[in-house]
Nucleic acid binder design. Structure first.
Length: 290
DNA sequence: CAGGCGTGGGT
DNA sequence: TACCCAAGCCT
């Protein structure tokens, strides 16, 4: 096995010099702020999260503040961040935190993991970043860095493997686990990127197994590419945008005009309703859930 | 476990 | 210009 400090020390040093000043990383950020940021950052770039997160923290500074609102308001103020079911789940987190945890974001991994929208990554991230606990924080950035640095692969497997988890756990320092986690993530986000890694700027290029092997091209199974144009997802997005922008009941005719295919439109609308993102009212109109 | 789930910026 | 893909989760 490799010597963990060969990777840790240069990455931690690099982080000291290159960490972005993100509001949810500041010392005055609350656990709630960290939790909100983590949900918003799922599959979503930092630059798009920043303004929405800031507005949410002003509007709903505590879980109790959000829990007191309707879920529809959470969806409305999600704006165009994407994957709006996350807004519903965050609202569900707030309600569970108030109902079951005295209004305080839990600090325990297992408890966090039981909240809506919080999976393995987010539970580990919140426990680490909000409470300084020691967990393997395996997001797409960390997985890519470790695939390269340790396994000499350009990309990690499609699904997280036990081997990856073993590698990540072996690298956790006995002290400062949370700082280590955010440092590796930051390296993946800023330097060891998916498309065009900036190896020239990398603090571990001399120790990276993939770099040392001559950066061999990825030869594993094809990675899933996503289509969007013409899909139900796009249709749902169009419909929900109308509901978000209108305050109150939206006549069906106002939804009909944003998507031509009526079969697909009906299916998408039914999907939004069954997901809890929309409500049908009497008189053939719709709105965000109250 | 593979597929569904938004959106917009970088290359 | 067309992809590629960005701090995943749920079913």
């Amino acid at each position: 096995m490799y010597e963990p400090n060969r990777l840790r020390e240069p990455i931690l040093d690099w982080y000291s010099e290159n960490a972005r000043d993100l509001p949810w990383r500041r010392t005055d950020a609350t656990p709630w702020g960290v939790l909100v940021s983590e949900i918003m950052l799922q599959q979503t770039p930092v630059a798009r999260v920043l303004p929405i997160w800031t507005m949410w923290m002003v509007r709903w500074p505590t879980p109790a503040d959000l829990a007191a609102e309707s879920s529809g308001e959470a969806v409305r103020h999600w704006g165009r961040l994407g994957y709006p079911r996350r807004a519903l789940r965050l609202h569900g987190c707030a309600q569970a935190i108030v109902a079951d945890h005295g209004g305080e974001v839990p600090s325990d991994y297992t408890t966090l993991r039981s909240l809506p929208g919080i999976g393995d990554y987010t539970a580990a991230a919140v426990a680490s970043f909000a409470y300084g606990k020691s967990h393997a924080v395996l997001d797409t950035n960390v997985r890519r860095v470790l695939a390269r640095a340790v396994s000499a692969e350009e990309f990690p497997p499609n699904a997280t493997t036990s081997a990856e988890r073993r590698i990540a756990e072996a690298l956790i320092p006995p002290v400062g686990a949370a700082r280590w986690a955010v440092a590796v993530m930051e390296l993946g986000a800023l330097v060891c990127t998916a498309r065009a890694p900036r190896c020239a700027d990398c603090p571990i290029k001399a120790r990276c197994a993939w770099h040392l092997a001559g950066k061999p091209a990825y030869d594993g199974p094809a990675r899933k590419g996503q289509t969007y144009e013409g899909t139900d997802r796009q249709c749902r997005g169009r419909l929900l945008a109308v509901l978000r922008q209108a305050h109150g009941a939206v006549p069906k005719a106002a939804l009909d005009v944003v998507w031509h295919d009526s079969v697909q439109r009906e299916r998408a609308l039914d999907g939004l309703i069954s997901d809890g993102l929309a409500e049908a009212l009497d008189g053939d109109s719709y709105r965000l859930p109250v």
